[in-house]
Structure formats: structure tokens, C-alpha cells
């Protein structure tokens, strides 16, 4: 029974990925404009354009191109960049770690800020402390990450000189240096999500505090701290988990701006470069990787639910959290 469910889930995941890859392929191949002409520019003669089209396989029917493309992707061949003939797979492998580190770091910062703030706000719900935190959070969610990035660069890099304003230092040059070079961009990417996490977790915590089992815990003589950590926290995690999955997916997109601002050699900056260079093959590869990551992360989140709340493992689920978790769409 359990294996059948797991297989079913895998099959569904595969179907979603197939759809994602198809959309990814179509969206770029149905764009107006001819990549061969774009590459050759004004100087291209009709003959050289036709030759290049043939070389790139663009003279084939769309369906054939799709099958070839998908077959190659499955073998790890993402094609070669139109811009510099480098294999797109190499470009992605080289740049992905920077983006992953940036996103992971930013989300660790966001959680480190949001979780305690949510816990305090929920335990003191309705008080000045709660309202103060809410205002702060509202401010954070209102500032776009690129505006925050400028402020951070100005304060921390230019005025205080604490962190570099741009550039990436690999781990091989020292972990401290590496983290320092990512600190400001990670902070810029953390603010918005931190605000979202605080609001979501606070709301869930407040709902949990309203449940009878919290009154029972109090009547047992449990301290407020232990009540928050041991009783309230875990039943309140589903909203946060869902948000985390969605945000991480969206950050792959937001990183385009931040990586450009801070000159980080990640996926976001290569995406921007490839779009302006009309390097469609690279764009396609990066978008596919981003979309696939989004799907996989959210599949992982689905799986996480059952660890957070074992009631969700049962086919017949009951209760508030169970209902809500089921309403979360699959990827």
C-alpha cells in the first residue's frame, strides 16, 4: 500500500516535470525572432543564416526538435551556448553552487529572524510587542529587495566598509571570506521572505494557542517557554513549510536582480546575460533547471508534511492542519 502510494507520487512528479519541460521548450521556441539571425546580426546573409539554422537544427519541425532536445536533456546534454559554444550543462554546474549557497544562506537568515519574532509575537498576541513586530515586518515586506540591496551596499559596504559591495569569493579562499561576500546579497533576499514567514508562523501559532490542548498544557503547569517550544511549535509549522517551498522557488527568479547587483557568478546573472545575448539554449537550460528545482522542492515539502504531522500519513485525515495541508496544491 505504502509502496503503491510512493510510486503513484513519483509518477505524478514525473508527469509534472514533463509538462514543465514542454512548456519551457515551447515558450522559447515559439518566441518571435530567429536565433540564427540574432546570432549573426545585421551582417548575416540569407545563406549564412540558413546554414546556421541547419547547424543548430532549427530547420527541423518543432516536434522533432522537441524529441531530440528532450532526449539530450535526459542524457545530461543541454546543448551548447550560442554565445561561446560552451556546454550549457557545464555553465549550469559551475554557477548553480553560487545561487544555491546564496538562497540557502538567505533563507537561514530569514528563518533565524522570523521564527523567534513569530514566537514572541504569538505568545504576546494583541500586546504592544506584537503590534511593534507587525509594523517592523510590514516595513520589511514593503521594501523591494533591490532597494534594500542599495541601502545595504551604501551602509555596510561604502559607509562602514564591513562587507564587499560586490564580487564572489569562493570557499577555497576561506569560509569567512566566502560568507562575507554573500552576506549582503543574502540579507537583501532574506528581508521579504522573513516578513512573510513571521506573519504566516505567527498566524498559525496564534491559532494553535487558541486550541484546547494549549489550555491543558497551561493547566498542567507547563512554563510559557516550554509551551511555545514543545506544544505550540510543531502543530504550527505547516504554513511556514509551504511558504518556504514557494519562496525558495521564487527566489531562483529574484536572484537574477540581486546577482546582477552584487556581480555574483550564479544562475541568475547568466540568465540575464543570456537573455540579452539571445542565447536561447542557455536560457532554456537555466529556466528548465530552475523550474525543475521548484517542482522538486515542493515535492520535498509535501513529503516534509508527513514528518511534521504524522496524522497526514493516514489516508483518512482529520483536523484543521490535515485539511489545510491537503488544500496545498501539488507543485
Amino acid at each position: 500500500m505504502r509502496t503503491r502510494k510512493a510510486l503513484l507520487r513519483l509518477a505524478r512528479l514525473a508527469a509534472v516535470l514533463l509538462v514543465v519541460s514542454t512548456l519551457c521548450f515551447l515558450s522559447l521556441n515559439l518566441l518571435p525572432g530567429d536565433p540564427a539571425r540574432a546570432i549573426l546580426g545585421e551582417s548575416g546573409t540569407p545563406e549564412s543564416v540558413a546554414a546556421l539554422q541547419q547547424e543548430l537544427g532549427l530547420d527541423q519541425p518543432l516536434a522533432d526538435r522537441y524529441v531530440t532536445w528532450l532526449g539530450n536533456i535526459l542524457q545530461g546534454d543541454f546543448g551548447r551556448s550560442y554565445a561561446n559554444r560552451q556546454p550549457v550543462a557545464d555553465i549550469i554546474l559551475q554557477r548553480a553552487p553560487v545561487t544555491i549557497e546564496l538562497i540557502v544562506l538567505s533563507q537561514l537568515i530569514a528563518l533565524a529572524v522570523a521564527v523567534p519574532l513569530a514566537a514572541v509575537a504569538a505568545a504576546r498576541r494583541g500586546t504592544a510587542v506584537d503590534r511593534g513586530i507587525s509594523s517592523l515586518v510590514f516595513l520589511a515586506v514593503s521594501v523591494p529587495s533591490f532597494v534594500l540591496a542599495f541601502v545595504l551596499i551604501w551602509v555596510f559596504a561604502i559607509k562602514l566598509g564591513l562587507y564587499p559591495a560586490n564580487g564572489f569569493i569562493p570557499v577555497s579562499d576561506g569560509l569567512g571570506q566566502n560568507l562575507g561576500s554573500l552576506f549582503l546579497p543574502a540579507l537583501a533576499l532574506a528581508a521579504g521572505p522573513a516578513a512573510l514567514y513571521q506573519r504566516v508562523l505567527r498566524a498559525d501559532l496564534v491559532e494553535t494557542y487558541g486550541q484546547e490542548f494549549m489550555n491543558v498544557a497551561r493547566a498542567k503547569g507547563i512554563s510559557p517557554l516550554r509551551m511555545a517550544v514543545r506544544h505550540a511549535f510543531r502543530p504550527s509549522l505547516l504554513g511556514l513549510t509551504t511558504s518556504l517551498g514557494v519562496v525558495v522557488g521564487m527566489l531562483i527568479g529574484s536572484s537574477v536582480i540581486i546577482e546582477n547587483l552584487f556581480s555574483l557568478p550564479g544562475l541568475g546573472s547568466i540568465l540575464a546575460q543570456s537573455v540579452s545575448a539571445r542565447d536561447y539554449v542557455t536560457v532554456q537550460g537555466v529556466v528548465l533547471v530552475a523550474a525543475t528545482s521548484f517542482v522538486l522542492i515542493n515535492a520535498l515539502v509535501d513529503l516534509l508534511y508527513t514528518f511534521i504531522d504524522p496524522r497526514l500519513r493516514k489516508p483518512r485525515t482529520r483536523g484543521r492542519q490535515a485539511r489545510r495541508a491537503r488544500e496545498v496544491p501539488v507543485a
Partner: peptide, 23 residues
């Protein structure tokens, strides 16, 4: 709180909502 659970305790009405759902 020092009394609760030690000198005096309470049994609540609805045992499903009174028990922690996960622990």
C-alpha cells in the same frame, strides 16, 4: 503554576482537542 498539575489538576470536556495532536 507551581500548584497546577501538582496540587490541583483539571480534566477537560473534549478529550480529542484536549490532547496534543502530534506528541
Amino acid at each position: 503554576r507551581a500548584l497546577w498539575g501538582r496540587e490541583v489538576a483539571m480534566v477537560f470536556q473534549d478529550p480529542l482537542s484536549a490532547l496534543h495532536p502530534i506528541t
